[in-house]
């Protein structure tokens, strides 16, 4: 293709958006709305996942040591456990520290237990984090077999329930996003199809005047690309800015909800949304033109 012709196609593609004003508006609106919905859902589900992972990561095993173990034995057990594959991290928790933590975790009601500080019922403990939360149960059983370990605690009943719930949440989230993505791709490409079907006659005339298929297609390629880019502008910008400010707001107001850091997340999301929008725009326009080229 000559450079002049390429320039002509780009010019025509841009002009066509104006010439078909209302249809272009409809297509751009469809892109805008669907990308916005997809973007919001993606952010919500990502953060939900993040929250769930944070809860799962909090799961730890406390293995209380027999009170008659000496430092050497403790060190040996600790290194042995640390060497296991399923173990992420092992730390030693002094019985006094353990009591402090326990009292702290109860907040103001913990004061009641201040009185037993002199006769601390707790033993020294090893705090073990599993490499994946699902390994916790098996790991706990294995740790319990050491003679130096008296008891093991890891919140058995809650843990199984938690994993059931979080797995469901993940599956539902993924299904929602995929479903939403497909329906928006369908909707956007359909709207673009409509803008082209209304120009069926023009495509026929082009062919009858002696235009090659590529000559007819190229301006539509540019047009689809531009519809995608323009349609993505508003949702991408508003989601980026909105998420950034929401993150800052919640960070101060509700600190225990840990959101995913806005950077580089918003950039990644922007790129993905823009990419989807361009691909769907171009694909939608090219597929619909193809039908009318058989003249």
């Amino acid at each position: 293709m000559k450079r002049n012709t390429l320039a002509r196609h780009v010019r025509e593609g841009i002009k066509n958006i104006g010439r078909n004003g209302w249809m272009s508006f409809a297509a751009i609106s469809a892109v805008t709305i669907m990308l916005f919905v997809v973007g919001v859902f993606a952010l919500v589900i990502l953060n939900m996942n993040n929250l769930v992972s944070a809860v799962e990561d909090d799961v730890e095993i406390r293995a209380f040591l027999e009170s008659d173990t000496d430092a050497e034995e403790q060190e040996e057990v600790m290194q042995d456990i640390a060497a296991a594959n399923a173990v992420e991290n092992v730390s030693y928790l002094d019985r006094d520290e353990g009591l402090d933590q326990f009292i702290d975790s109860l907040g103001s009601e913990g004061a009641v237990y201040e009185s037993i500080r002199d006769e601390n019922p707790l033993n020294d403990a090893l705090v073990i984090e599993a490499s994946t939360p699902e390994h916790t149960e098996a790991l706990a059983t294995a740790v319990n077999d050491y003679t130096a370990i008296e008891t093991v605690e890891y919140g058995e009943s809650i843990l199984t329930q938690l994993f059931t719930v979080t797995n469901y949440l993940r599956v539902i989230g993924a299904a929602l996003i995929i479903g939403l993505l497909f329906s928006s791709i369908f909707l956007i490409s359909n709207t673009i199809k409509l803008t082209i079907i209304s120009r069926k006659d023009e495509i026929e005339i082009m062919k009858l005047v002696g235009a090659k298929n590529s000559f007819v297609r190229f301006p539509f390629f540019i047009e689809g690309l531009l519809l995608g880019v323009i349609g993505a502008l508003i949702p991408v910008a508003s989601l980026m800015i909105g998420y950034f400010y929401l993150y800052r707001f919640l960070d101060v107001q509700i600190p225990f909800i840990t959101m995913v850091e806005p950077f580089p997340l918003v950039w990644q999301l922007a790129l993905i949304l823009l990419g989807i929008s361009i691909v769907v725009g171009v694909w939608g326009s090219q597929m619909s033109v193809r039908k009318f080229l058989k003249v």
Binding site: K2, N4, T5, M206, V209, G210
Partner: peptide, 11 residues
């Protein structure tokens, strides 16, 4: 002009 453009006539 369209009929000339399809033949890639110089602008």
């Amino acid at each position: 002009a369209f009929a000339l453009e399809v033949t890639e006539e110089p602008p």
